[in-house]
Amino acid sequence: MITMKNKIPDLLLVVATATAALSASSSRRPWRELDFNAGQDYQEFLAFDLSLGEQQKASEGTRLSAELTTQLDALGFNTVRVRNPAVPVVTVPIEEAAGEVLAEALPLPGQTETLPKGRLVDAALELRATEAGVTLTTDDRGKLSQAATLPKRIRSSAFLDADNLAELSSAGVTEVPVKRAAAFRWGDWSGRWAFLISVFVMTCAVAWKRKLSVVDTAAASSGSSLETLRGLLAELSQSVSSLSERAAGMSAEELHAEVDALLQGPAYNFVEGRALLQRAAGMGAFALVMDPFSRGERQLSRAWSASVDQHEDEARASIAKAAPLLREASEAFPS
């Protein structure tokens, strides 16, 4: 029963995260819902085909005219999905195009560019050549077998900075098609309430989980787990001190065997159980233990490596450095 109760905040968190992700994603959809008034004319365009009866339909992209809103109202509609943005591409005079982004590639009348022999021919280039009425000859690796001349153009999505605009002006271009992006409007986002509710549920689930975690920690701290951890650290500290005293007469192989057993035994087990110490004693006390412990553990690892390399002196020196560090960690363990 207690386990089931503990799972509820987890379940809430999972469900609320999924609904929050979904409602957030809905803010990127390329349409919005519009509440229209019958007989009113809108500069908005249908996002989807709409059936207006058995034989009639309004196609995607149809403008929401007064006639259409009247017709829709008669059919019982009062909301319709319209494109967002309403017009993704607009044509503007070149004098007003600074800082805009070209919606499509734009040829520069009278100007050409030469593509060298050897250039790879991809589908986009083939299309461009076809549109220009140029035939490209390629070799068996799909590269141009001879240079080709095509009308010069400014690429689609080019940013219209001073250089591009000067080039367009000098080529006699007077107006350009530019992109319009959908602006995010809080009021237009129908998923906002679902998102806010999901975030609220996530907050409640997090608070609940943290409360349960405090209860768990109190239970674990009062039990034997923390004592086990303390015992492991004390055992490690005593073993390393003892090894340090005996190390002078030991061979590299003997040192290696003992250090390996310590690293894989008490040191490994202490590391595995460290989260309990952090939860029970807090980050400050945890750091006071883990800092000297980790330094001591690293010296033991160095002793391990040095013994493998048949460098007994370094192994002994490293064990000697590890001993006081592990003692310090053991003494710092909260009582």
Binding site: T17, A20, A24, F159, A182, S213
Partner: peptide, 25 residues
Amino acid sequence: IRGGDAPIPLFAMGGVMGALLSLSG
């Protein structure tokens, strides 16, 4: 981004969710 189509609201919404998840313990 230069065309004004940066998903800044999604970054912000994700930020709120990420912060809450990391507060879960």
